[in-house]
Design a protein around this nucleic acid. Structure first.
Length: 146
DNA sequence: CTTCTAACA
DNA sequence: TGTTAGAA
């Protein structure tokens, strides 16, 4: 049923190579360049420099960190707290991403419905766990014998 | 045009 | 933090 296209998703979707300049980040996340430089000075975020003394460049990890910090700041938290929460979020996202890439085995059709193959359910590898999207915000699971 | 640093009616 | 200035 599935050809070579099924495993592309997790590994080919690598956004970690994307980098942004300070002005781009500022516009995209509604954070002033002044703030970004200050946050870096405080050690909350890191940037790479093109050349010595040249302009700042942020990678995806820091982009996400800035995005999260902005979110918590909007919630009324202090800068320090916002960074603390953002840092924890990044850890959780890394964990979740690792879990997803390792559990995702492809999209298949089960009972005429799109089903997400989440790998073997038991150690003996006799049954597989499938996940289903019921609605926009509802999922369900089913264990099926091979 | 963009970014950098430093300083402040 | 905003907003400048002059330089790169």
């Amino acid at each position: 049923m599935n050809n070579g296209a099924k495993m592309i998703f997790p590994k080919a979707l690598n956004l970690d190579n994307l980098i942004f300049r300070i002005g781009e980040v500022s516009k995209m996340l509604n954070v002033s360049t002044r703030q970004l430089r200050y946050w870096e000075q405080k050690g909350y975020i890191q940037s790479m420099r093109n050349k010595c003394g040249e302009s700042r460049v942020f990678d995806m990890k820091n982009f996400m960190c800035i995005n999260l910090m902005k979110y918590y700041l909007n919630q009324g938290f202090t800068l320090a707290k916002s960074h603390e929460f953002a840092k924890q979020n990044l850890k959780n996202m890394k964990l979740l991403r690792n879990f997803m890439t390792n559990s995702f085995q492809g999209i298949e059709n089960v009972n005429d419905r799109p089903a997400i193959n989440l790998g073997y359910f038991d150690k003996e590898q006799t049954s597989i766990l499938y996940g289903f999207i019921d609605n926009e915000d509802s999922v369900s699971y089913k264990v099926i014998k091979k």
